[in-house]
């Protein structure tokens, strides 16, 4: 119950420092934020300034860049879809039910967020690798996951899925239970309640979580290079191509880095825009 109270309304309240006149407060805070904002901004600006558009177009056509780009798009899409499909039931379970071990599952979801990706890579390797506890049985059936795009997707799901699940849990908790319950009283089945009531009410949070998962998967490096290896066109995603390319061809690395930066920025901006519209829409309907 208390979780619900925290999850919803507070966000929209004024966040100004008390006691200061509004305008002055904002100016002081802007000034105080400048070092942080500049620190985050400067390296990105430097990166964009280093890549000339002509070079970028030229490099875009190079097979290494195109392959890495294509592979990153397909694997992150697969990882995000898999995460949403497998993560929604978990989110419903955590948001709607008390059960023994709930705290454990919840903590387990936090773990990949703090774990160094290299740990994830080694763990995946000794689980799904050819000699791993699961992998050896797969291997007998003639399936090897390591060094394949499937391994790339698994590494991405491992490190990125918690973003979606955690976001989905908070979204589900924010949905008014009374609305759900009255629908249920009116004879709706649990699935119907979920489809007609719960999901329409919390989809912005779900979308936000899915995008965070996608963005994290897009940047995944450590687990991938250990578990999936580095093979252009097969397992070399953009972050790997950037890392390897940095040594030989700075231009390729810079082009990929700029693309990654641009794509992430645009997608995050779009999703934030959509979410804001949606929230305003909901608010005006409630008013």
């Amino acid at each position: 119950m208390t979780e619900r109270a925290i999850a919803r309304p507070r966000v929209r309240e004024s966040a100004y420092a008390p006691g200061l006149p509004r305008k002055r407060g904002a100016a002081v805070l802007m000034l105080a934020s400048a070092p942080m904002v500049l620190f985050l901004l400067l390296p990105l600006v430097a990166l964009v300034l280093r890549v000339s558009p002509a070079h970028m177009l030229e490099n875009l056509a190079s097979p290494q860049v195109a392959q890495a780009l294509g592979l990153s798009i397909t694997t992150t899409a697969a990882a995000t879809v898999l995460t949403v499909l497998a993560g929604l039931p978990t989110a419903f379970l955590l948001a709607r039910h008390e059960f023994p071990g709930r705290g454990l599952v919840s903590t387990l979801l936090d773990l990949p967020l703090v774990l160094p990706p290299a740990v994830a890579g080694i763990a995946l390797l000794i689980t799904f690798g050819r000699a791993g506890i699961v992998g050896q049985h797969l291997s007998q059936a003639g399936i090897q996951l390591t060094f394949t795009p499937v391994a790339v997707v698994l590494a991405q799901v491992f490190v990125a899925s918690p973003f979606f699940v955690k976001s989905a849990v908070s979204g589900l908790l924010a949905v008014d239970r009374e609305v759900e319950q009255s629908a249920s009283v009116d004879g709706a089945s649990p699935l119907q309640v979920a489809r007609m009531i719960t999901l329409p009410l919390c989809w912005p949070t779900l979308l936000g979580g899915a995008v965070m998962t996608w963005a994290r998967a897009l940047g995944e490096f450590g687990a991938t290079i250990i578990f999936a290896g580095n093979m252009p066109g097969r397992t070399q995603t953009m972050p790997l191509a950037i890392y390897i390319g940095f040594e030989m061809n700075l231009n390729v690395a810079l082009t990929l880095a700029a693309i990654l930066l641009g794509a992430s920025f645009v997608v995050l901006l779009l999703v934030k825009g959509v979410l804001q519209l949606r929230i305003r829409d909901l608010d005006s309907r409630l008013a």
């Binding site: 060094f147 580095n230 093979m231 390897i244």
Partner: peptide, 15 residues
């Protein structure tokens, strides 16, 4: 037949 190009030679030994 190459399945992966590692970033250093020790990674080859481990795999």
């Amino acid at each position: 037949n190459v399945v992966s190009y590692e970033d250093d030679v020790e990674a080859v030994v481990r795999k």
